[in-house]
Design a protein around this nucleic acid. Structure first.
Length: 486
RNA sequence: GAACCGGUAGCUCAGUCGGUAGAGCAACGGACUUUUAAUCCGUAGGUCGAGGGUUCGAGCCCCUCCCGGUUCACCA
């Protein structure tokens, strides 16, 4: 770094300060110049990029430039550039260089810009750990996982795979929007700062609004404000937004993550299943050009319908426990114990059923599967199943053993919603920190009339993980949360 | 929160039994007019995550702490 600062000083003394440059007209991106060689050969063009590698031969020099699109080799000769050639000594890997010259093919066949004029456009005063590469092989470079997360810019600059994930994420979300717009949905933005975070079971982040002298929370879901829009006559609505949950960090959990929620009036649970199937198919085809994805030996084909599975039946199939064993709390706890699952006193039969699902069924749901019929206790916003009042018209979608989506035929009865909130309040008093808070304003809105509605939530980070094959959620979040590095 | 693994030069890593801290790349000086992991000659570069302990002597053994990773727990 000392050497680089000294070079910058020398450049400034020669009135070649790269940091005064504001603009450099480029005719082509580096990849475009390379790809259009046939038509551009011999023409004078201007390109720019970051110096990726330098091979100085004394009186001739080869430099690879890199930009967002790709790389291009530059060829420089001392006999053509004269004294300006000595400037090369003041350039470093990582600097930005603009070059004007004509395209030709070297004797080893590489398309190269024979530069006649160059201009240093910016300087990197800190060395960049670019890898060495030959064809597809790479050596050295930045591998340290901690540094890749904390200094993501270096990761993006030096690891093409990271760049690919970033691009895939952007395109997956863009295609999700395009699909939903095509289905007639309107995209909205609702508050992140809320007096009372609701719509899911999770501990919120707490903060303070000085202007109104109010305690506030960061949202944990999008649900309750989007539903207010249903009351407001917006029949098809969605939001893709950041939510915050003050909970554990793992390969599948980041305290802030991106959630898609959508609501469709006059639609039910089966419509939501269809929507999930069509959304994954659309994104797979548009972003990756295929419906078939390989994960090790597993092949998932998004052109196939997802499997439907009833929660109680699935638990029975995996554990042998029968539905009648969950009629009372006592027998449910005994049943859980018999298959090695510890339960707590405040658990209800429904919560125990769901724990059994997580432990015994979820890991086996490799192919796309909708699990339906979730217990009432854990589903305060879903309609009940007519002839099974302890279960709801809800599904969760699973892929590769991971929860991917969550949907209901939405409860739209304000009287029952009020009772559900009351039940949650009781749970809260029993010590369940994640029981849903009582939201009077939400009930109030529902009392004006909410249409029958299908609602769906998808964790976008997990969707990106799945489609890009990322092992950790940190790989699909640009700047994942990290402890202070002091 | 627990267990296990890791932290050594700018980067990637090695470091044997506890005995003078190493390599490649990058950097710096020199040679080289079609190279491409350029090559060749030379130079420099370190609080071995931090602190304490054992020892004649610690990168290595012991303790505490910090940071990261993985798995588990937690997270409908």
């Amino acid at each position: 770094m000392q050497a680089r600062l000294h070079k910058l000083h020398q450049l400034r003394e020669q009135s070649n300060d790269p940091f005064v440059v504001e603009k450099f007209e480029c005719d082509y991106g580096l990849q475009a110049a390379h790809d259009q060689f046939e038509s551009l050969e011999g023409q004078t063009i201007r390109v720019a990029g970051r110096i990726f590698s330098v091979r100085n031969m004394g009186k001739a020099c080869f430099i690879h430039l890199m930009d967002a699109s790709g790389k291009l080799q530059i060829y420089l000769r001392k006999d053509e550039m004269g004294d300006a050639y000595d400037q090369i000594d003041l350039w470093d890997i990582g600097d930005f260089l603009g070059a004007q010259g004509f395209l030709f093919r070297t004797k080893t066949g590489e398309i190269t810009l024979h530069a006649q004029q160059t201009q240093l456009l910016s300087k990197s005063v800190r060395p960049i750990p670019f890898p060495k590469e030959k064809g597809e092989q790479r050596w050295y470079g930045l591998h340290d996982i901690e540094q890749r997360y904390r200094q993501r810019y270096l990761d993006l600059l030096t690891n093409p795979d990271s760049r690919q994930v970033l691009i895939a994420r952007s395109r997956i979300i863009a295609e999700t929007r395009r699909f939903l717009e095509g289905e007639g949905f309107l995209e909205v933005e609702t508050p992140m700062l809320q007096p009372m975070a609701g719509g899911a079971a999770a501990r919120p982040f707490k903060t303070r609004l000085n202007a109104l002298d109010m305690d506030m929370q960061l949202r944990i879901s999008l649900e309750l404000y989007l539903k207010r829009l249903l009351v407001g006559g917006i029949d098809r609505v969605f939001e893709i937004g950041r939510v915050f949950r003050n909970e554990g960090i793992s390969t599948r959990h980041n305290p802030e993550f991106t959630l898609l929620e959508l609501y469709q009036a006059y639609a039910n649970l089966e419509d939501m299943m269809s929507l999930v199937e069509r959304l994954f198919l659309h994104v797979a085809e548009r972003v990756f050009g295929t419906t078939r994805f390989e994960f090790g030996e597993t092949i998932i084909d998004f052109s196939q319908p997802w499997t439907r599975l009833d929660l109680v039946e699935a638990v029975q199939e995996r554990t042998g426990l029968t539905p009648d064993q969950f009629e009372t709390l006592e027998s449910a706890r005994k049943a859980a114990d018999s298959v090695g699952l510890a339960s707590e006193k405040r658990d209800s039969p429904g919560i125990i059923l769901e724990k059994l699902l997580e432990k015994f069924v979820e890991p086996t749901l490799i192919q796309p599967t909708f699990v339906t019929g979730y217990p009432l206790d854990t589903s305060p916003f879903a309609k009940i199943i007519a002839d099974r009042p302890n279960f709801t018209r809800r599904f969760e979608g699973y892929l590769l053993g991971r929860e991917m989506s969550n949907a209901f035929s939405e409860l739209n009865d304000p009287l029952e919603q009020r009772e559900r909130f009351e039940r949650q309040s009781e749970l809260r008093q029993l010590g369940d920190e994640e029981a849903h808070p009582y939201d009077e304003d939400f009930i109030h809105s529902m009392e004006y009339g909410m249409p029958p509605t299908g609602g769906l939530g998808i964790g976008m980070d997990r969707m990106v993980m799945l489609l890009t094959g990322a092992a950790s959620i940190r790989d699909v979040i640009l700047f994942p949360l990290a402890r202070n590095a002091d």
